[in-house]
Amino acid sequence: MAIEKKGRTEKKKSRRSTRIDNVQLFILALPAIILLFVFCYIPIGGVILAFKKFKVNLGILGSPWSGLDNFRFFFTSSDAWRVIRNTLGMNFLFIVFTTLCSVLFAVIMFNLRNRRMVKLYQTTTLMPSFLSWVVVGYMVYALLMPGEMGLINQVLTLFGAEPVDWYARAAYWPVILLLVKLWHGVGYNSLFYYASLMGIDASFFEAAQLDGATKSQQFSYIILPSLKPVIIVMTLLNIGNIFRADFGLFFNVPRNVGVLYPTTDVVDTYVYRALTQLGDVGMSTAVGLVQSLVGFVLILITNLVVRRIDPESALF
């Protein structure tokens, strides 16, 4: 319906004014395009560093080639498997739960009648997104501090339970990280879904109500189908980054404690830890390149799958 409308108005315009329209839009987009070009396209040239032994005095082009040497560091390490598993596993959890919770929250907000309360809830849930991970790390630390210093342990002892040494038990951390991530990101993510819910034509709901559709029927026949494209696009984007962990979260929240590495060590933290010692640009570039390639391939595959199932929703 929306497409039809657009077509009709377009036809009315003369070809010349369309062109002027385009030029104006292009100028509007220009700053963003320039930024994208400068910060995303030009640096792509830097990937050649992954195949070089970088020497500062010889520069990027002058440094000698080193074949696949830089890739050896990561792939021959005994932790590679664990690190990859953590990265993919945690990101998978994040994608699934963030999407679920955000959609749920957006739908709840959409159904609330009291607009002022909606603003209140949204602002409250949005706040954490503005906190830097460093700050969040300390907030979590205040909750989980070892001994009887942490808030949670104080509550536990109040009820007669033994205090838990959170920073020594790796098994708890996938859950802790997931909760922190949700707390930090759901408010922000739900805005996308809330915005597209607001875009649904109100007449749909009126018609449904007239026909006696229940809330849950409205949800599955109106809300969900209209959210589907946004959910798919967001998930696709997230999958593209699935091999790239949120460094701030994984580094600052577990406080870089060695015992927790079995569940909290991800590609980014591993590389950071190993290469801050060496400052080896080549090796870091090599890992970054692998991350990008995996992300790229995953996007292609997911999009392919989406296109098989529902061609309308595919990104390209």
């Binding site: 040497d69 560091f73 390490s77 005994s78 932790d79 190993a274 060496l278 080896d280």
Partner: peptide, 9 residues
């Protein structure tokens, strides 16, 4: 250097 990077970790 490969060994060293891994050992640091």
């Amino acid at each position: 250097s490969t060994q060293m990077a891994q050992m640091s970790s």
